[in-house]
Design a protein around this nucleic acid. Structure first.
Length: 713
RNA sequence: GCGCUCUUAGCUCAGUUGGUUAGAGCGUCCGCCUCACACGCGGAAGGUCGCAAGUUCGAAUCUUGCAGAGCGCACCA
């Protein structure tokens, strides 16, 4: 027996060394696996943002995906797990802006090139840190295939997709209402905003012969249209297009009556004025009737000269002042102080979103969404848990056109060129190269991050003619957090179907959020953030992995407590001592003969473990990893150690030589099997024991053969 | 408003297609340094499976209603 077993298992002294051996072996790359003709099995790793440390959610997905990959690899598949790093456009720019802020600098005082270079340096440094942490968690991914979303070939691939979509009429440039963050000076997609309920005064004003309601008096300067439902009998005497005089904020105005079915007759007085520039709904109404639109609030969130005496005020400040003025003029009829409405906020800085009309690039979602739904209908795409299929369908059926332009430097440039930009005779060319002639001006906008990460499974396999595309696309499993069911999953499906005519994966496994021990969401302000790397150094990676997996059903949030992980550290040590006992009682002559001299009485233990093997194999194949982990844990501790080992002690100390031989061979055999079954979950301690096993049939447990259950049944 | 998820032992959660005395980890209590392991061993307490009704020979598991918790989406000035 190896002397190392005389001391308790020490993960800190083991894990780094083992990982290095694995990485050196080359077996993370399926091209180097002994089974060259194995069926491919592919997972694309959700590329972590290269802008900070890994959090508990990363640790969870790395664990889940690594379990499946290790299992498939042992089963003889050409198991490929492709790692990556995401430049995470807006996210990273926000992180870097905070750094700038601390240094008393601002991106608005920097040259774009300077800013870009600084963020690039920061990101590349963070990327190294992130990769080290992924290794620490035991990820058996193929680093030789790692991709970064700003690699030159990735940039070109993404731009080409844009070019193709433009040619196919799936991308257009349009003036539309967008979500504008006045702090970050960029537009945001709908999923990058968060609606929060606010109690805002609801004012009712006199507007000519009408009463109109609003929560935003500060937008009302330019309002010269009053809209009501065509079927509203109360206002039947007013004809569409008729005009009237009304006293308003800054004096008398001429207003026009518009009839439009978008108005809710039940709400308020059933009459409203519209501000097309600062409201999606109003914009749509204005477009239908060809009405004028005027910007009231500038890009910094301040009132424009149209507001006369209120010019330059922030909208919230102007709000009460304008209401006061209208009150003085006798136009304020009533105020409801308890009115609740939902206001969209920037998901990063919580600044209220100002709807603005702006020229942006949009993806037409309807035809693409239809393709995605058809793929689900065909059964090409399955969700775990399956209730997410319904959510996915709903989203695909109701999605609005996707704004893909961002006014930030950190990202992939949109390959568009303008001549006479902003003028009547504006011309646009889509081209990866600068067009001939000096008058062409590059688009300064960059793509929404999800436009590039949406193409990730295609990009990392080398679509359309890369070496891996034919072999590894479509991939098998997409495992990610359920919060990405809207942000990321639909985009990958759409791009896969559009470009490669195939869904990029056939199974989507969605895990829940990792919360603290009490099930509360982790947040910096609450101070309950659990750093996974602290836990690995304290209890070992294997223990953390078990803690993350056991009791963690798909789609359900997980409460992660340190005590739980501590328990699995004890388990790692238990396994270590099982090995110590078994190896101490394994005479040399038994090695190599294993099962052949096991007697009938002892054979029942082999049969029982075979049954468990079948069970566990099916669990993992059907992605019930939480169950498989618990079963093998329970077997190792409460059957093998508590019962079989205890029962073996008198036999091994006895005088019946054949019974002794049988028993020690049995124990070796059971331990060998347990190591294999446990390896995907606890790769380090099992590998470390394996290296000392006289029965090992492969240099690394990582590539040892998983028992073939078709021969066991 | 629409939709999803959850409600099982003190805590955090399992319970795979309805089928024998409902499980785990941690915690609690009692006894043990028994030569694999005190990161351990043996034993014990602890649950009307949110409430109500229904389907069934049989329900924690299926149906309906109610109550509570969490989340998502859409919102009307």
């Amino acid at each position: 027996m190896d002397e190392k077993f005389l001391k308790p298992y020490d993960p800190a002294a083991t894990e780094g060394r083992i990982y290095e051996q694995w990485e050196k072996s080359g077996y993370f790359n399926p091209d180097n696996l002994p089974q060259k003709d194995g069926k491919p099995y592919t997972i694309v790793m959700p590329p972590p943002n290269a802008n900070g440390n890994l959090h508990a959610g990363h640790a969870l997905f790395i664990t889940l995906e690594d379990i499946v990959i290790r299992f498939k690899r042992m089963q003889g598949h050409r198991a490929l797990w492709i790692p990556g790093a995401d430049h995470a456009g807006f996210e990273t720019q926000v992180v870097y802006e905070k750094i700038l802020e601390k240094e008393g600098r601002s991106r608005f005082q920097m040259e774009p090139k300077q800013l870009y270079d600084e963020i690039l340096a920061f990101t590349l440094e963070s990327k190294k840190n992130m990769e080290r942490q992924v290794r620490e968690l035991g990820a058996s991914c193929d680093w030789s295939r790692e991709k970064f979303t700003l690699d030159p070939d990735v940039v070109i691939a993404v731009q080409k997709t844009f070019e193709k979509m433009f040619a196919d009429d799936l991308v257009y440039r349009g003036k539309r209402t967008i979500n504008w963050c006045s702090k970050h000076q960029t537009s945001l997609s709908d999923v990058e905003t968060e609606g929060t309920e606010e109690t805002t005064p609801f004012y009712t004003f006199k507007y000519g012969p009408f009463e109109i309601g609003t929560v935003r008096p500060e937008t009302k300067f330019g309002d010269k249209y009053v809209v009501m439902h065509p079927d509203d009998k109360r206002y039947a005497k007013y004809k569409h297009g008729e005009t009237f005089e009304a006293e308003w904020i800054n004096g008398p105005i001429t207003a026009t009556v518009i009839k439009d079915p978008a108005v809710d007759m039940e709400f308020g007085t059933g009459v409203m004025t519209i501000t097309p520039w600062h409201s999606q709904v109003d914009f749509e109404i204005a477009k239908r009737h060809g009405l004028d639109m005027e910007q009231i609030i500038d890009w910094r969130g301040k009132l424009l000269p149209i507001a006369s005496e209120f010019v330059g005020m922030k909208s919230t400040e102007a709000r009460t002042k304008i209401a006061e003025k209208l009150k003085e003029k006798g136009l304020l009829l009533k105020v409801d102080e308890n009115y609740k409405n939902v206001v969209k906020h920037c998901y990063k800085c919580n600044t209220a979103i100002e709807p603005q009309v702006k020229d942006q690039w949009f993806v037409k979602m309807a035809p693409l969404g239809k393709m995605a739904i058809e793929a689900v209908n065909r059964g090409d795409l399955k969700f775990i848990p399956d209730n997410y299929e319904k959510i996915f369908r709903y989203w695909m059926e109701n999605t609005l056109d996707w704004n893909i332009s961002r006014q930030i430097v950190w990202g992939i440039p949109i390959p568009a060129w303008f001549k006479n930009r902003g003028m009547e005779n504006e011309e646009i060319i889509i081209s990866l190269e600068k067009p001939e002639g000096n008058e062409w001006e590059a688009d300064t906008d960059t793509f929404d991050t999800w436009f590039s990460s949406g193409q990730w499974p295609l990009i990392v396999t080398g679509f359309p003619d890369g070496r891996d595309f034919a072999t590894y696309y479509p991939t098998d499993l997409m495992e990610t957090g359920h919060d990405l069911i809207f942000k990321w999953i639909p985009r990958m499906v759409i791009f896969g179907l559009y470009l490669a005519k195939k869904s990029p994966f056939h199974t989507v496994y969605l895990h829940g959020l990792v919360n603290d021990a009490k099930g509360k969401k982790m947040s910096k302000s609450k101070g309950n953030v659990i750093n996974p790397l602290d836990l690995t150094s304290k209890y070992g990676t294997d223990a953390l992995r078990m803690g993350l997996v056991i009791g963690n059903t798909p789609g359900q949030d997980l409460a992660l407590s340190e005590d739980k992980i501590k328990g699995y550290k004890h388990f790692a040590n238990k396994l270590w001592n099982i090995a110590r006992f078994v190896l101490a009682n394994a005479p040399e002559e038994n090695v190599g003969r294993t099962t052949s001299n096991i007697n009938e009485v002892d054979k029942k233990y082999l049969d029982a473990l075979d049954a468990l093997t079948i069970d566990i194999t099916k669990d993992i194949e059907e992605y019930r990893v939480y169950m498989a982990a618990e079963k093998i844990y329970h077997y190792a501790w409460h059957e093998l150690a508590d019962n079989i080992l205890e029962e073996s002690k008198p036999i091994l100390a006895g005088t019946d030589e054949s019974a002794k031989q049988s028993r020690s061979a049995l124990l070796l055999s059971l331990l060998t099997r347990v190591l294999k079954l446990l390896h995907p979950f606890m790769p380090f301690v099992t590998e470390e024991i394996w290296q000392s096993m006289p029965t090992k049939d492969a240099d690394f447990l990582m590539i040892a053969t998983w028992p073939d259950i078709s021969t066991l049944e």
